Simulated assay, not measured.
Amino acid sequence: MTARGRYFPVLLVCLLAGTSAADAASAASDPFGGRFTESARVGEDQAQVIYYRASDALAAGAANVYLDQELVTALKPGGYTVFCVSPGRHMLGAYLDDAPDYSGKTRELYAAAFKAGATYYLKVREEGLNQPMPVSKSTAEVELGDTREQIHLLSRASRAEPCRYYDFLDDPTFSVRDFSILADTAFNARGGMTEDGNRAVAAILDGLERVNAQIIRVEVEGHTDPMGTGSDNQAQAQRWADGVRRALIERGVPQSVVTATSAGSRMLVQHSCYGSRSEQQACYSPNRRIAVRVEVRTVKAR
């Protein structure tokens, strides 16, 4: 699937509240989407969760799945959901029939560290226990063959991310790509990003997408000229770096892989400018920049 290379929705959903009575009745009569096929790998910037209920589950009600105390979906027997999280510690669990007060999200959920690039197959425990039941891939994919995607609810889990799938090369190519954005054109006098700055950030990401490069890590570093005090230059360069970092995240780069630091005026590319203040500012302009270093893994498009 060509759309899997970047921003793929976590859940295909319809929100019952606010829909017509006919639409609500239709969704309620068939809350499922397509059948489970095969799990794909995610990159090192995410962990993938496949949560499901067996089709022969004895309890007829819904099992509300929570991620970090926010509702993901309500799994019915024979339903599954797929979502991704940033690597690290998260709380996760499923509660049978805790509507309408949804008390499960305020209780202590199962907490675990999710590893980068891993896929977790988790099954709802039908005996009333709320922690997920880890299942091996071979067992899960057999049981998932009888399930369909749960699509009737909108996920409220703010820490659930769109999964980014890649078709990895047998011998993947790792590389580092360096970019530079001029601060004079990227930011206005008030410190806000200009259209030129937004276009520069978009051009970086568009170029990486064209070669199907998986972003592993991004280091954003702000630089100023030597005019002004050291503390002011350090702060200004940090503001520029933070602005570019925000722009990258707004365009879909996971915030967990982007760092922003300041080099102040310690790494000049243009030295010894003379003349009036305006002449020096013009001469020193190449120093006022934001360096963007991107570590990537080159992959094949699906």
Rank of each mutant, 00 (worst) to 15 (best):
G43A: 08
P31F: 10
D23L: 15
G34P: 05
V49K: 03
F32N: 00
S29K: 04
G61W: 05
P9L: 10
L58D: 07
P31K: 10
N64C: 00
L58M: 06
A21M: 12
A28K: 12
L12Y: 15
L16V: 10
V49R: 03
D30R: 10
E38S: 13
D45T: 13
E44C: 09
Q46N: 02
F36L: 05
T19R: 15
A60G: 13
V13W: 13
A57D: 09
R41M: 04
L15G: 12
G33E: 00
P31S: 11
S55C: 03
L16G: 09
A25F: 05
A25K: 12
A40L: 07
R41L: 06
V65E: 00
A40I: 00
A27F: 09
D30A: 11
P9G: 10
A57S: 14
Y7R: 13
G43S: 11
S20G: 15
S55F: 05
R53M: 09
S55L: 03
T37N: 13
G33M: 01
Y52F: 14
T19D: 15
A28Y: 06
R35F: 08
E38A: 12
R35D: 03
A47D: 02
P9S: 10
L15V: 13
A21K: 14
P9F: 11
L67W: 02
A60W: 11
Y52S: 03
C14G: 10
F36C: 05
A17P: 11
G33T: 03
V42H: 08
G34A: 10
R53H: 06
V10P: 12
S26K: 12
D56Q: 11
V65L: 04
L15Q: 15
A60H: 08
A63C: 01
Q48T: 01
A24R: 13
Y51G: 07
L67G: 02
L11R: 14
A47C: 04
S39M: 14
S26N: 06
T37S: 15
G43L: 06
A59N: 14
S39A: 15
A47G: 04
Y52M: 02
G61D: 14
V42Q: 07
G18N: 11
V49T: 02
T37A: 15
S20R: 06
S55A: 13
S29N: 03
N64P: 00
G34Y: 04
A27E: 11
A57R: 07
S20V: 09
Y51L: 11
V42S: 05
D45F: 06
A57P: 02
I50N: 04
A47L: 02
A54L: 12
V10C: 14
R41G: 06
F8V: 08
A21Q: 14
V49A: 04
Y52C: 03
S55R: 01
V65M: 00
Y66G: 00
F32S: 01
